[in-house]
């Protein structure tokens, strides 16, 4: 079993008012030195069976057509092996 993580972020040129609101709150919390914050989404997909090339290709299609709207967002797909000991 493996976990596939899909990260979705607004394209860099698109304004992210939520990220800005978070960034503006930081100095009030005594946290200085952060000039920009952008907020995205993370999807964790628990995949049955091996994550082979075919499975990854399907997840890539899913991310492209559904999890992200590529008109306004970029996405990345990465595999996280779930350690045996953690089960």
């Amino acid at each position: 079993m493996a976990r596939v993580v899909v990260d979705v972020m607004l394209k860099p040129e698109i304004l992210d008012p939520q990220g800005q609101a978070v960034q503006r709150a930081l100095p009030r919390l005594g946290f200085d030195g952060v000039s920009d914050v952008r907020q995205g989404k993370r999807f964790e997909l628990e995949v049955d069976g091996p994550v082979d090339e075919a499975a990854l290709a399907r997840i890539h299609d899913l991310a492209e057509s559904f999890l992200a709207n590529t008109v306004i967002e970029d996405f990345t797909v990465k595999v996280e092996e779930v350690a045996e000991a953690a089960k």
């Binding site: 304004l15 939520q18 709207n69």
Partner: peptide
């Protein structure tokens, strides 16, 4: 194009 949250949140 696409639709996003109002800029004033």
């Amino acid at each position: 194009g696409g639709m996003l949250g109002n800029d004033h949140l």
